[in-house]
Amino acid sequence: MIDGAAIHSASGAFIAGLVTSLHCVGMCGPLACGVGGGKGAAAQVSASLYHGGRFLSYAVLGCVAGAIGAEPLNLLLDSPAVVLPWTLVIVFLLVATGLERRLPKPKFLVRFSARLKLKIFKMSQQRGALLLGLATPLLPCAPLYLVLTASLLSGSAAKGGEFMAAFALGTVPLLWVAQGSFNKLRAWMTPQAFDWTRRGLAVAAAAMMAWRLRGTLFFIESSQGVPDCCPPGL
């Protein structure tokens, strides 16, 4: 059960990354493209440094969150990993309804983001790309807050790191495409189209995960029929 839940957690985190990457393109796309966009070998190196930095910082934060949440969770549950995929279902539903936008954004992170942008654009492209990637978890981003909070329920530092690393990988494909052709992508899809696509994918992901996980809830009977304790006809 734990192994299966861990698989669901990693795949769910990857899907969460794919879904929220639509949000990332709209919100962080211009900044990411400023340090990792363009064509040629130099641009690809910058993009690689940016995504490598994000991957590393997400994984480290996941390890920290998993370690912090491990002991309290172990006291409450025998198999903490079973809970984590269900928290992703909740995250997807929040994204689908747009409620994640109502999460408060700490003012100090907003100020930090503004100062970071000024500092990055004074650096070389590759140094700026790496710094932005490493600092991305400190930028105000509601979906990231939700997924990082979910990683508290991973059960251990290793699983927390794995969970956030899978999330980071899920955000890479669309952002990498955006860095190479941001203007074309924005012309092809309006902000409204991005938003509705993100919401639709979130609904589909929540429904798919809930269906696959339906047997992990203690109050949902499995497909084995009526329990032996209950005679037919009752």
Rank of each mutant, 00 (worst) to 15 (best):
K159P: 10
A168L: 07
A165C: 11
L152T: 06
L49E: 06
I90N: 13
A150L: 03
R127M: 11
T87W: 06
A81K: 04
P140K: 03
Y58F: 09
V83K: 02
L118A: 15
K39Y: 10
A96E: 04
V89D: 02
G66D: 06
E100F: 12
V147E: 09
S156I: 04
Y50S: 02
F167K: 02
A70E: 05
F55G: 02
A96K: 03
P85N: 10
A157P: 05
L132N: 03
K159D: 09
Y145L: 10
V91G: 01
S124E: 13
E71I: 07
Q126L: 14
C63S: 14
V60K: 05
G160V: 02
L94M: 15
F121N: 08
L138I: 14
L49M: 06
L94Q: 13
L75R: 11
G52D: 01
L148I: 07
L138N: 09
I120A: 04
C141L: 08
A157T: 03
R101V: 09
K119F: 15
M123E: 09
A142R: 07
F112P: 02
L169H: 09
I90M: 13
V177I: 11
E100R: 14
K105R: 14
G133I: 06
A81L: 02
G98W: 05
L77P: 02
G170E: 07
L130W: 07
L73F: 09
G160D: 00
V82A: 08
A67W: 11
P137T: 05
A59K: 08
A70N: 06
R102N: 08
A43N: 03
F163P: 01
L139E: 11
S46T: 07
V89N: 03
V60R: 04
L118E: 15
Y50G: 10
R111Y: 12
A41P: 13
V95H: 07
S46A: 11
L132R: 08
V64P: 04
L138C: 13
W176K: 14
L77S: 05
L88K: 00
K39P: 08
C141A: 12
A67Q: 06
V45D: 06
S79P: 01
Q126T: 10
L73E: 00
L144F: 15
L73T: 03
K117Q: 15
P106H: 12
A41Q: 13
E100S: 15
L131R: 05
C141R: 03
L153Q: 10
A43R: 01
M164S: 00
W86A: 01
F163I: 10
A81R: 05
P173R: 04
G133N: 00
A166H: 07
A65E: 03
C63M: 12
S124P: 08
L73I: 04
I90R: 09
V83R: 00
L75E: 12
P80E: 05
L118F: 13
G40E: 03
V45T: 11
A70G: 07
L130Q: 07
